[in-house]
Design a protein around this nucleic acid. Structure first.
Lengths: 104, 104
DNA sequence: TCAAGCGTAACCTATAAGGTTACAGATTGC
DNA sequence: GCAATCTGTAACCTTATAGGTTACGCTTGA
């Protein structure tokens, strides 16, 4: 079987899950809390939370703070997860960008 | 003289500079590169870069990748700086948010 | 069966990034 | 002095996204 060696340095490798999946499995399910109840606690609409949970919306800075309050977690960690997710998708288009080097 | 003790754990303390200031002082100035030239290299309009440098726009994921190419840096670091900046401002409104605790 | 929970479509607003064009103020070279 | 250049920015456009409300259809449990 043939294998291919690929560059690793600038690659993130594992398509990071959208943060919504983490909210669902690490926050809602362990507490037995549903979408409706969680949305009420967070102070957002059920639609807004549902969109996040299903990867159709990102975690805004304000939402990160809301999550940190409701689940006693770090707002920074939620926002960092979103950043990693966004960055991975942006890196997928790296080769399409026409950018000239100024240093390096 | 009287002093006041304040909570530190969840506080970021030093109003983080917007990433544009860092681009200017750490990338453009050392290279002697102007806004016009840098914008051309990055493949964006002069207006777009000027807005970032002067704190009137944030660094998008795509822009982070552009910066990483032009200045041979890490896209992640640029995006993390933006995240810290955004988070600090979101934290300033933490008390205004009506959120119920679900854990903790 | 019926209520509750969930996903989501349709429609609205507000904000943000990005573009082009154009103008005014500085700087610099001739 | 004068012209060229660089810069900030306003005006105006498009696109995308977060967030809201309302409403619909599906599933599931009492």
């Amino acid at each position: 079987m043939k294998t291919t060696t690929r560059k690793v340095t600038t690659m993130r490798m594992h398509n990071p899950p959208h943060p919504g999946a983490i909210i669902k499995t690490l926050c809602l399910e362990p507490l037995g809390v549903g979408v409706t109840q969680a949305a009420q606690a967070l102070g957002v609409s059920r639609k807004t939370l549902s969109a996040i949970l299903n990867g159709r919306a990102g975690i805004s800075p304000e939402m990160a703070v809301r999550l940190s309050i409701a689940f006693d977690t770090s707002a920074e960690s939620w926002l960092n997860q979103q950043t990693q997710y966004d960055l991975w998708h942006a890196e997928q288009r790296r080769k399409q960008l026409r950018v000239a080097k100024l240093a390096g």
